[in-house]
């Protein structure tokens, strides 16, 4: 399949993973078997890495918060950043981990939502003690306005009149 069609399938799935292969095939005018085959191969390549529900946890009424941590590290000779990264991302508490290109820190760590106490505990007893970590700076998310391209603030209400010419 050409890259353009492949990317169209991905764009649709990224927005709505519940679309059936039949629906995708109809919407893009690509044969259903081709769609199935392509999705399967993208899953095998780990290009599609999963299908998740997109949840606005702020509505789930827990007292948990989201935190983002900037980490400064000292890379090891011959190992680069990858081995340090592994020591961090293997923790289930870590939701996302990015190595950053410039600035005065190296990694951005995003934690799964947790209580303030749990976060403090994780940072001090797990992250800060990793040998290569020189410093941590923890930021608490106060309000999430937009995530995965969806605005969380605006709601879904249709502002149009019910029938117009």
């Amino acid at each position: 399949m050409n890259i353009k069609d492949r990317n169209k399938i991905l764009a649709l799935l990224e927005k709505d993973a519940k679309l059936t292969t039949k629906e995708i095939s109809v919407m893009l005018a690509i044969g259903e078997d081709d769609v199935k085959k392509e999705i399967k191969s993208m899953e095998d390549e780990h290009l599609i890495c999963g299908y998740h529900a997109f949840i606005n946890w702020d509505k789930a009424e827990d007292d948990k918060i989201s935190a983002l941590i900037e980490l400064k590290v000292t890379p090891q000779r011959g190992m680069g950043y990858d081995s340090i990264a592994k020591k961090i991302y293997e923790y289930p508490e870590v939701e996302s981990l990015y190595l950053m290109s410039a600035g005065d820190y190296d990694f951005t760590v995003i934690l799964k939502k947790a209580t303030m106490r749990e976060i403090a505990n994780f940072v001090t007893t797990k992250l800060a003690v990793i040998e290569e970590v020189r410093s941590t700076s923890t930021h608490i998310v106060m309000t999430k306005y937009k995530e995965f391209g969806v605005s969380l603030a605006d709601g879904k209400k249709d502002k149009r009149m019910a029938i117009t010419p």
Partner: peptide, 24 residues
């Protein structure tokens, strides 16, 4: 010819309107 239907639509909850002539 749209007027009459418009009045009914506005009274019914849970309507899916495929009668809208403007972009969503």
């Amino acid at each position: 010819g749209i007027r009459k239907l418009f009045d009914i639509v506005n009274e019914i909850p849970n309507v899916i309107s495929l009668g809208i002539g403007e972009p969503d």
